[in-house]
């Protein structure tokens, strides 16, 4: 197996449906909380260290071969808001379809069979990384990066930001992303011995509140 699989998996063009989601950015722009490059960076940093860290932990543990169904439940307990659970499962289902076509595996089949409505996206991402022969740290990195790519791309469209500025934000956060991925990987290594409770559970009140608000909008550009 090839590390290049990580590039395929993390590529925004990988057909997993993520482009339709802004990761809370549409609501943040509508409220005026994100309005320029600096506030975009603050949003991305906050999301990286909360939702991104949680996703990275789940993905790393799934890539490590931990029980995906137990991880899916752990994702539920870490996602108190109904709209965000629904979106995570929808994204998981879309990723599952692409993953099974790309890296067929019995682990993916098993998860798909037990969660026909979709498992939480980071869990599917981790099982996919495992099927592609990637390491848990690779899965953590892909999940953490995924938590930023959506909002950054969406901000460009919603605010007519310069795409170069948005990309520079992602580049500036690369070091922190590595730290988050390392922390997630370290936590995932403890799951077999200590259970899923050791995985990160960081939450962000505004992402939770606006996630549900956004889901109730009748007209919106992004699905989340």
């Amino acid at each position: 197996m090839s590390r290049t699989a990580l590039l395929v998996l993390a590529d925004g063009r990988f057909p997993a449906g993520g482009h339709a989601h802004s990761g809370g950015m549409e609501a943040a722009v509508a409220s005026g909380r994100v309005h320029d490059t600096a506030s975009l960076e603050a949003f991305c940093r906050g999301r990286l260290h909360t939702a991104g860290l949680v996703a990275a932990g789940l993905a790393a543990a799934a890539a490590d071969g931990c029980d995906a169904l137990a991880l899916d439940q752990a994702a539920d307990t870490r996602t108190p808001v109904a709209a965000l659970r629904r979106i995570a499962r929808r994204l998981g289902r879309q990723l599952m379809r692409a993953a099974r076509a790309t890296w067929p595996s019995t682990d993916l089949d098993h998860l798909a069979r037990h969660r026909p409505q979709g498992a939480h996206q980071p869990v599917v991402l981790g099982v996919t990384a495992r099927a592609a022969g990637l390491a848990p740290l690779d899965a953590a990195r892909a999940a953490a990066y995924d938590s930023l790519g959506g909002p950054a791309t969406a901000a460009v469209r919603l605010l007519s930001l310069d795409p170069l500025d948005a990309t520079a934000v992602l580049a500036r956060l690369a070091g922190e992303l590595d730290t988050v991925a390392d922390a997630a990987d370290a936590a995932a290594r403890r799951v077999t011995a200590e259970g899923v409770g050791v995985l990160p559970a960081a939450s962000a009140p505004l992402l939770d509140i606006t996630g549900e608000q956004h889901a109730a909008w009748t007209v919106r550009l992004f699905a989340s």
Binding site: F43, T77, A204, L206
Partner: peptide
């Protein structure tokens, strides 16, 4: 069985705790 598992971190050195994804100006 686990029902809810949550952690919050506010105030320096928590990253971007007062940013637009976490608490904003609240």
């Amino acid at each position: 069985r686990p029902l809810l598992d949550q952690q919050t971190a506010y105030g320096y050195p928590a990253p971007a705790w007062d940013g637009p994804a976490v608490l904003g100006s609240h």
